[in-house]
Design a protein around this nucleic acid. Structure first.
Length: 194
DNA sequence: ACCGCGATGGTCT
DNA sequence: GACCATCGCGGTA
């Protein structure tokens, strides 16, 4: 393994993700370790997860609970299946368009949570496989890395029942767009005191 | 504040 | 037929 997926996930914080006329500054992500990670869609290699085994910096989109779309950055290396789920961001461009897509919510909630973020950016299955570093055109793209994104906090991933103990959720401290933590209904209870 | 639950559909066993 | 990498609402406190 070269650069691991945790490092890739932290490196996405603060970068700009643009989708169909709306740009967000990424404030919250989760790392998924591919074939080595029981919580990853790529833990079993299937038609849906095939794109995750391909080259880095392409977009993996899936439909969640039949209702929402969620956007992931495939991080490579190939054959590993690693990807980073983009969970939240601050809208920095195209606020009016984001409001139109999301309806009446406070601005800091426009792209709060993976389903909401994809909706604000207009991301659907049509965007599956987009080359995120391409210079040209509309669609979805990723901005350059940020030298100092701010203080990074880590915690367990939201809503996963497998590998619920690893702290592979990363967010920027103090950002109002960071979504509330909810563990999976099926995840084991967390012991708070001895 | 926390907790429960319904909507809704693809993916996988 | 079960299981979700969700969201927002409506209940109870």
């Amino acid at each position: 393994m070269t650069e691991d997926v945790e490092t890739e996930a932290r490196g996405l914080l603060g970068r700009t993700l643009t989708g169909h006329g709306v740009a967000v500054r990424i404030t919250e992500v989760e790392a998924y370790g591919g074939s080595a990670d029981p919580a990853s869609h790529a833990f079993t290699r299937t038609p849906r997860s095939e794109i995750m085994y391909g080259p880095a910096w392409r977009l993996y989109v899936y439909r969640s609970y039949g209702i929402h779309f969620c956007a992931n950055v495939v991080t490579g290396p190939t054959e590993q299946g690693a990807a980073v789920l983009v969970r939240a961001g601050e809208v920095v461009e195209g606020v009016d368009l984001a409001r139109a897509r999301r309806g009446p919510v406070p601005d800091h909630r426009l792209a709060s949570g993976p389903g909401n973020l994809a909706q604000a950016l207009g991301i659907t299955l049509d965007d599956l496989g987009t080359e995120l570093l391409a210079e040209d055109g509309e669609g979805v793209r990723l901005g350059p890395a940020v030298a100092d994104p701010g203080e990074i906090v880590a915690g367990p991933r939201v809503g996963v029942s497998k590998a619920a103990d690893v702290a592979w959720r990363f967010w920027l401290a103090g950002e109002p767009s960071v979504s509330a933590y909810r563990r999976s209904p099926r995840a084991p209870a967390i012991r708070l005191v001895d």
